[in-house]
């Protein structure tokens, strides 16, 4: 049987990562039940508020992913060992963050169609979020440029440390400028949460579920990137060996 068939467990799997994945799947099912069936409709928005249970958690966890990328990048740049594992964690986290931010934009667009009657507006929150998304797509492109693994790590770490500065701009854009997007309901500066009990619970539960999914994906992606780097190094080693063999006079 081929080693690439789906019946063979991926080499990145461990008992812990498997359990984390099962928790993520079970949590997603519970979240769907809460968000789609058990929570009440909103007084103003009706049933369209059910999009909130995926839209808001993916946005928050995307922020978390980008902050984690910056922390790992700082660890790589200023750490004594300049760990490549921290660089791979930064890259894995940014990839997952881009997926979550993409989900935020798509679900926000669908929610906007229901609430505002349009899929897109060049509103401060929407525009800054799209800009953040494009910035991290650019970060991933920078990671794909040539050079050694340490050159890649240093270059992308610097980009990550600048890119993370956009997050406060996105979060506070609804306060800084006149925006169609509603202001924060939970993370308000005065700490006053304006949400019903079960709705708030489901939202916080959604954040927990997507954080678990994030951890699970990053864990696996980090290991895949380690395998990619190992194969690359082996390829370089093999090429050097071949070159040395050619240079030996016969």
């Amino acid at each position: 049987m081929s080693n690439t068939t789906t019946s063979v467990p991926p080499p990145t799997r461990t008992a812990a990562s498997r359990n984390l994945g099962l928790i993520a799947i079970f949590g997603s099912i519970v979240l769907a039940l809460l968000g789609l069936f058990f929570t009440a409709e909103d007084v103003d928005q009706g049933s369209s508020v059910r999009i909130m249970y995926v839209h808001v958690p993916t946005a928050w966890v995307a922020y978390l992913a980008f902050v984690f990328t910056a922390v790992c990048s700082a660890g790589h740049l200023w750490g004594r060992k300049h760990s490549l594992n921290l660089d791979r964690l930064a890259g894995a986290s940014a990839e997952v963050g881009v997926i979550f931010m993409g989900v935020t934009l798509v679900t926000g667009s669908l929610w906007g169609r229901l609430s505002w009657g349009t899929y897109w507006q060049w509103d401060p929150r929407l525009t800054t979020t799209a800009f953040l998304f494009v910035t991290y797509v650019g970060y991933l492109a920078v990671r794909g440029l040539g050079g050694t693994q340490h050159q890649r790590a240093k270059r992308s770490a610097i980009v990550a440390l600048f890119a993370v500065l956009e997050i406060p701009l996105v979060h506070f854009s609804v306060l800084l400028w006149r925006s169609l997007h509603q202001e924060a309901t939970v993370l308000r500066p005065n700490g006053d949460v304006k949400m019903d009990g079960l709705m708030l619970f489901s939202l916080v539960f959604g954040v927990a579920v997507f954080t678990t999914i994030f951890a699970w994906l990053v864990l696996h992606r980090n290991r895949v990137l380690a395998l990619v780097d190992a194969v690359e190094l082996r390829g370089i080693d093999a090429a050097l060996e071949a070159r040395r063999a050619e240079e030996v006079p016969s």
């Binding site: 080693n3 690439t4 789906t6 991926p10 080499p11 990145t12 994906l217 696996h220 290991r223 895949v224």
Partner: peptide, 10 residues
Amino acid sequence: NARRARRLDP
């Protein structure tokens, strides 16, 4: 990711 990992494993 799982597919990539399986392909790299050998």
